[in-house]
Amino acid sequence: MIDKRCADAAAAVHDIRDGATVMIGGFGEAGSPTELIDALIEQGASELTVVSNNAGSGTTGLAALIAAGRVSKMVCSYPRSADSEVFAELYRAGRIALELVPQGTLAERIRAAGAGIPAFYTPTAIGTILAQSKPVRRFGDRECLLEHALSGDVALIKAKAADRHGNLIYNKTARNFSPLMAMAADTTVVQASIVAAPGSLDPETVVTPGIFVDRVVREERSPQASSPGVGWL
């Protein structure tokens, strides 16, 4: 029998090691798996490389992980935040590394890793400083950059609902990078507002099939404890 449910967030992140590459879903705070990040801070792993579109906002979640000194490198497209200086201060002090990646290239690199594609060519960023040291090849009349797949040891993501197989649906624009990261990490951990009985998710609307998911934790802070009795979620 397959049952990917974990007792709690601590159990779901207990084996993340120092130096791991951790993919964290979310665009700003939309889709950020804050309970899993809190558990990771508690767990103590350090020297992490974090792949996430942004570098934290405010003082909680990813910003708190960075502030705790656990992150040695960020891979992201937009590490600037109007309401957080946490990353900026460490970056200016030379205490955190940054690999800046155009947002579409970041998404495609993650997808490529999940799809078994080691590298691909794209015209995005050609002729810019982000193209420096990358091989260039011409296709027709377009020059393109070689970009490598980006995989993770672990992905931490947030879903609206999950079942014990790990099938997932998301909420609005909280989906963003999570389906890609689920494909690209060795171990994918999900915090879900709802953990539903098998058969509660309409197979036609499942966004992330369970094969890409390893662990499911129900959100403690979520008001919805279980799935409704009738109909698809």
Partner: peptide, 15 residues
Amino acid sequence: GAVPAVGGAMDLVTG
């Protein structure tokens, strides 16, 4: 000075 941040701009202008 400022932290570099590109977002989706390079993808938009290319595609």
